[in-house]
């Protein structure tokens, strides 16, 4: 039974694409057949995060307009043989794809893959409507920041209107130090407003930036806290019951290390 998941947020820059890439790699590492679809036409990034930019031959628009079959447009990941990317066009815009085309494409992909993960563009306009059209379930990504939570709330409302009731929450870029000192929204505040099931709490981690630049999602990095958080999310998607991570208090030496650099 395959599952179509859309990763969305409303606000830009909260980590939709990062989350998509990491969940994709995580599921592939568990030997699931996964395809990631980038629907952020004109502003594609997912290929960069996976380090697959130079392998793209055809894109989503070629497929939806019937120029090539989807099999030709899929780009296989260099390390994980069960992970595929369907990139979008960098030159066209979001009016080039419509919801019906995505639904048709996903019906075809469903026969072959265990998970179809759709990376949604920011905003609530046509690009968003196209991205969510085929989804069975949605992952809403937010940050512990008032504007991101507001936009997530709006997006959950919009998803409800589109009759997508299976919605999960991922809170990204948490800074445990700031939460502890009361300078950042904590999980209780966020749950209070959004009141949907949370499947992930990802700490802010410098390694996310370095791994993004290198094109290797942070989830494959054993020593990274964010990587561990993403591995937990993947486990929860597969139905495992994993408790949320505790963020250890920063010790005196860690602080020294941070102040004087590494």
């Amino acid at each position: 039974m395959s599952e179509i998941i859309v990763v969305t947020s409303g606000k830009g820059g909260v980590g939709k694409t990062t989350t998509t890439a990491n969940i994709g790699v995580g599921l592939a590492a568990k030997n699931k057949k996964v395809v990631l679809i980038d629907t952020d036409t004109g502003l594609r990034n997912l290929d960069l995060l996976l380090g697959l930019e130079n392998r793209i031959m055809y894109d989503l628009i070629d497929v939806t307009e019937g120029r090539v079959s989807y099999k030709k447009a899929l780009v296989r990941h260099k390390k994980y043989s069960t992970l595929y990317l369907l990139p979008t066009s960098q030159v066209k815009d979001k009016t080039s794809v419509n919801p019906a085309q995505i639904v048709r494409l996903c019906e075809d992909l469903r026969k072959e893959f265990d998970y179809i993960i759709i990376d949604c563009p920011a905003g609530i306009e046509q690009g968003f409507k196209t991205a969510i059209a085929a989804a069975d379930c949605a992952i809403v990504v937010t940050m512990p920041e008032i504007s991101a939570v507001r936009d997530a709330d709006k997006i959950i409302g919009e998803l409800g209107r589109a009759e997508k009731e299976n919605i999960k929450l991922v809170v990204n870029r948490i800074r445990p130090q700031m939460v502890r000192s009361g300078d950042m929204l904590d999980m209780d505040d966020i749950n209070d407003i959004l009141s949907i099931e949370c499947i992930g709490q990802v700490p802010d981690d410098e390694m996310v930036v370095t791994s993004t630049n290198r094109g290797e999602p942070v989830i494959s990095n054993e020593s990274s806290q964010a990587g561990q958080a993403y591995r937990n999310i993947v486990g929860r998607i597969c139905g495992e019951n994993i408790p949320f991570m505790e963020f250890p208090e920063e010790g005196f030496f860690d602080k020294l290390k941070r102040v004087f650099g590494k």
Binding site: R150, D153, K154, I156, G157, E158, G160, I193, S195
Partner: peptide, 25 residues
């Protein structure tokens, strides 16, 4: 019996009972 989320509007001539939150916006 659901949460009213940001951007949504409830308009009614009579009284309203909401079993859920009324969110900002």
């Amino acid at each position: 019996d659901k949460t009213i989320r940001g951007g949504q509007e409830v308009v009614c001539n009579g009284s309203i009972l909401i079993c859920g939150n009324v969110n900002p916006g």
